[in-house]
Design a protein around this nucleic acid. Structure first.
Lengths: 342, 342
DNA sequence: ACAGGTATCCGAAACGTTTCGGATAATTGG
DNA sequence: CCAATTATCCGAAACGTTTCGGATACCTGT
C-alpha cells in the first residue's frame, strides 16, 4: 500500500525524483539516489504496475495464446514443456506471462486486438493454433509483436516464429526405416490445417524419392493428432494396404494409438510392423515397445520463443525466424523389414 | 486505441454514462444503453484494464505461484493438468491467470506481498511448494486471498485449500496389497516437507495397523519425489530388507524409478515384488508392467482451486477446504504375494 | 399547484505512475 | 567577473477508468 508519494515524503524529495532515481535515470545525485533507495527498501515500496502500464504503455507482460491448453492435450507434455521454457526466459528478463483464456465461443465476441489491448500485453506468443484459426488472420493485421510456434509466416516485421525442422526430422525418420530394409512405408499424418503436417509429409515424400520409392497416396491417412485418431488410421492403413511393413506417424500420440491397433490386429511391433513417431513425448520412452521417434527440443523452443519476442520488443536486432534441429531417437519400435514370404 | 471518451463523444453522452451503461448499472435509460453499446461495438471499444485496475483496485486476475514449473516436473503432468482446470474455470468466470516467475534467488529480493501488490492480482493459487518455503509463511501474514494446493492450512479466513484425500488413498493402496497376501510392505515416501508425504505415510500406517501388521521404521525410505530418488530408495529397501514383497510409492514417478531398480536387481514385477504408485500420471498406464496406482483428479483439483478462490473473492459463502476422493486403479504391477520358500 | 419521489444524466476527483519543460544552483571557460 | 554550461531537482499534466455527489426533468398523489 505504500506509494511513490510516501517514499518521496519520507525521503524529502519530489515524486519525480523518486521515479527517476528508482528507474536509473542519470540526472539524480548518487547520494540522493542512495537515500531514496534506502527509504524505498525500508518502506517495502514496489511500484504499481497498473499505474505504470497506464502511462508508459508498456507492461512487461507477454500474452500466451495456447489453444492447446485443454484437457486432451494433457497426454503429450509438449505444451507444458514449452511453457516451462517460456517461463524461464521471461523470468530472466523480468517479464510476466499471462494466459489468455480463449474458448471458441469467446473468440466470436472478442477480437484478437481487443484481447491484447485490454490486457495491455507487449507481445504475444501463439501456439497450438490451426492454420484456419480466426485469431491468426486477425493477428496479421494487428501491430502487436507476435512469435508463432510451428507456424512459419514471414510476411511482417513484427512477427517471428520458431519451429522444428520438420522436413529434416521426417526425412531422418523415414530414411531410418528405408535403411532397415522397409519399402512399403505408410504415414499417419495430423490434419491439413497444421503446418507441421505439411512439412512432415514433405519430408516423408523426399525421403522416399531419394531412394527411388514411389509415393502412394493411399499410404497416408490423417489421424488428427489424437491417440484414437492414430489408432483408426493405423487400422485403415493396415487392412487396406497389407503390404506395409512400417508406419511413420506425425506424432507420438498417434503412434501410441497405432501400437494399439496393431496389437488388436494380432501383429507384433517391430517384428511385423515398425512404428516411428514424432515429438518424443514422455510416454514414448515408457511404452512397450519403447517408441523410436524424432525428438523436438520443446523446452528450448519455448525458451527461444520468449527470448525472440522480448528481443523484438526491446528493439534488439535478432533473427526472427528460428528452425530447431530435430533428432532421431532409435528405440525398440523399429526393426529390420520382415523377409517377404511371397 | 479507442477509449471511453471516443465512445462518449460518438454517442453524445458523458463518459460517466458510458461507463455505467457498459458495466450494467441500472440508472441508465435502456434506449441510451442500447445506443452506447452499439457505438462501442462499432468502434471496437474495450476498456483498458490497467486504468480500471488502478481505480477499482480489482484486476480480475489470479496469480499462480507454481514452484513446480520447472523442467524436471515435466515428466509428471500433474501441474499441467491442474493448470488446465484452473484455466477453464477462470475462463468461465472471466478471470485471467498470470504466472509468477519466481526463482529461488528472486525470492530473496522480492517479498510475496510485493509480488502480489505489484501485479495487482486479486488472489493467488499456490502449488508445488514445500512446507518450508518462505513464501508460505509470508502468505499467512498477507491479506490477499489464497488457495493452496496440497497444503492444508485452516488458520485464516482468506485462505482455502484443495487436496486429495491422501490418507484414504494410501490406505486403499496398502489394503489392496494386504488383501493380495502381502505382509512385508515397504514404502517409498517423498520428503518431510510435503503435506502429502505425511498423509500418505499416515494412510500406510493405518492400513497396516488395521490388519495387525506392525509398522517398521526401516521399511520406509524417502525418494524425494523424483524418478532417480525412487530408484535409489528401492535399491536400499530391497537390499536391506530382502523379505519385502511389495512397495507402496508416494508418487508414480518414484514407482517408475523403483521399477528400474527392481529390474536391475534381477527381480520381476509383480511376480517377485508388487509395486503401487500414487497420482496416476500419464506414463503410469504406458509403462510395463502398467502401474497400479491411486488416481488423483488433477484437473478437477485445479478447477476447484480456481472456483474456490473466485468465490472467495466475490464474497460467496462456500466451503474453503476441499478434500477430493482418491481412487485405486488396479493394473499390472501388483499381484498376489509370492509363496514363502522358507 | 406543490412537495416529494424517481429516472436519467453529468462534472470532477481520484487511482499511482512517468515525463516534459523548465527552474535553481553550482561550475566552468575566457 | 560574467556568460554559458552542467548537475540536480521539481511542478504539473497525462494515461483511461470508476464513482461520489449532485443536477435536471418528469411524475405522482393529494
Amino acid at each position: 500500500m505504500t506509494t511513490i508519494k510516501d517514499v518521496a515524503r519520507q525521503a524529502g524529495v519530489s515524486v519525480t525524483t523518486v521515479s527517476r532515481a528508482l528507474n536509473g535515470h542519470d540526472d539524480v545525485n548518487p547520494e540522493t539516489r542512495r537515500r531514496i533507495q534506502e527509504v524505498a527498501d525500508q518502506l517495502g515500496y514496489s511500484p504499481n504496475i497498473a499505474a505504470r502500464t497506464l502511462v508508459s504503455k508498456r507492461s512487461r507482460t507477454l500474452g500466451l495464446l495456447l489453444s492447446a491448453l485443454t484437457r486432451n492435450s494433457v497426454k503429450d507434455n509438449i505444451v507444458f514443456e514449452m511453457l516451462c521454457g517460456m517461463n524461464d526466459r521471461a523470468a530472466e528478463l523480468e517479464y510476466d506471462l499471462v494466459l489468455f483464456n480463449t474458448t471458441p465461443q469467446k473468440q466470436r465476441q472478442k477480437s484478437y486486438k481487443a484481447l491484447c489491448k485490454e490486457r495491455g500485453v507487449d507481445g504475444v506468443i501463439m501456439m497450438g493454433m490451426r492454420l484456419d484459426d480466426p485469431y491468426l488472420e486477425e493477428m496479421l493485421h494487428a501491430s502487436i509483436p507476435c512469435v508463432l510456434i510451428d507456424i512459419p509466416i514471414e510476411r511482417k516485421k513484427n512477427i517471428g516464429y520458431v519451429m522444428t525442422d520438420n522436413v529434416q526430422g521426417a526425412m531422418e525418420a523415414v530414411t531410418h526405416l528405408i535403411e532397415r530394409g522397409h519399402r512399403h512405408i505408410g504415414m499417419i499424418n495430423g490434419h491439413a490445417q497444421a503446418a507441421v503436417s505439411i512439412q512432415r509429409l514433405d519430408g516423408y515424400r523426399q525421403a522416399l524419392g531419394r531412394h527411388g520409392i514411389p509415393f502412394a497416396d493411399r499410404y497416408v491417412e490423417d489421424g488428427g493428432f489424437s491417440e484414437d485418431g492414430g489408432k483408426d488410421a493405423a487400422y485403415r492403413l493396415l487392412t487396406s494396404c497389407p503390404e506395409l511393413t512400417a508406419i511413420f506417424c506425425a506424432s507420438d500420440l498417434m503412434a501410441l494409438g497405432a501400437l494399439q491397433a496393431i496389437r488388436a490386429l494380432g501383429k507384433r511391433v517391430p517384428e511385423d510392423i515398425s512404428i516411428i513417431g514424432f515429438d518424443n513425448i514422455v510416454a514414448a520412452q515408457y511404452c512397450t515397445p519403447a517408441l523410436t521417434t524424432v525428438n523436438q527440443d520443446k523446452y528450448q523452443m519455448g525458451y527461444i520463443a520468449a527470448a525472440t519476442l522480448i528481443d523484438m520488443l526491446e528493439g534488439r536486432q535478432v533473427p526472427r525466424y528460428r528452425k530447431m534441429p530435430a533428432e532421431l531417437i532409435v528405440r525398440a519400435s523399429t526393426g529390420p523389414a520382415p523377409v517377404r514370404q511371397n
